[in-house]
């Protein structure tokens, strides 16, 4: 099972270290992590994904909650959240027609195309992990030279209630 945990933390040095250390010392696995400051500069939001089972997941949430530097810990429901990952992929160009083909695929996946060279091209894709994997499958044949992923970042969907 795959879970997304959203953690609002104090925007202070060392907090990322403490969170990752917690996972290490309790033998939990982090699949991805993304961190950035929020609209309020006093806080950062971390989005973690993990493939822990239900029992472990509940422990992870409680242990995160127990940390003094975490202000809010939420297990996100996939169906009620927007979650995306950004991936940059450098793909090998062997023959000139590769460029057109890859660009067409990129357009179909609403990707941006960067840095077109004779021997490589960089594609930027922002999507859910499923779609990213689908894209990766399609371009694998050309040869993927390098990739970098940001990790999932996620937000709960809003409601129509006035606040």
């Amino acid at each position: 099972m795959w879970s997304i945990i959203s953690v609002l933390v104090e925007n202070k040095p060392g907090v990322l270290f403490k969170v990752t250390h917690l996972f290490r010392s309790r033998n939990y696995n982090i699949d991805s992590i993304s961190v950035g400051v929020t609209e309020n500069p006093e806080f950062s939001r971390m989005t973690l994904t993990t493939s822990a089972d239900e029992k472990q997941l509940s422990q992870i949430i409680k242990q995160l909650d127990k940390m003094i530097d975490t202000v809010e810990v939420k297990l996100l429901d996939e169906r009620k959240s927007i979650y995306r990952e950004l991936v940059l992929m450098k793909i090998k160009i062997t023959k000139p027609s590769d460029i057109m083909e890859i660009t067409d695929l990129a357009n179909a996946f609403k990707c941006n195309v960067h840095d077109v060279r004779k021997s490589s091209i960089i594609i930027e894709i922002t999507a859910t992990p499923d779609r990213i994997n689908a894209f990766e499958d399609l371009v694998k044949g050309y040869g993927v030279l390098e990739t970098t992923r940001t990790g999932i970042c996620a937000l709960e969907r809003g409601t129509n209630n006035e606040s």
């Binding site: 029992k55 409680k62 242990q63 127990k66």
Partner: peptide, 8 residues
């Protein structure tokens, strides 16, 4: 007193 102990 520690919620993290419940079910650990």
């Amino acid at each position: 007193v520690d919620p993290a102990e419940i079910g650990k």
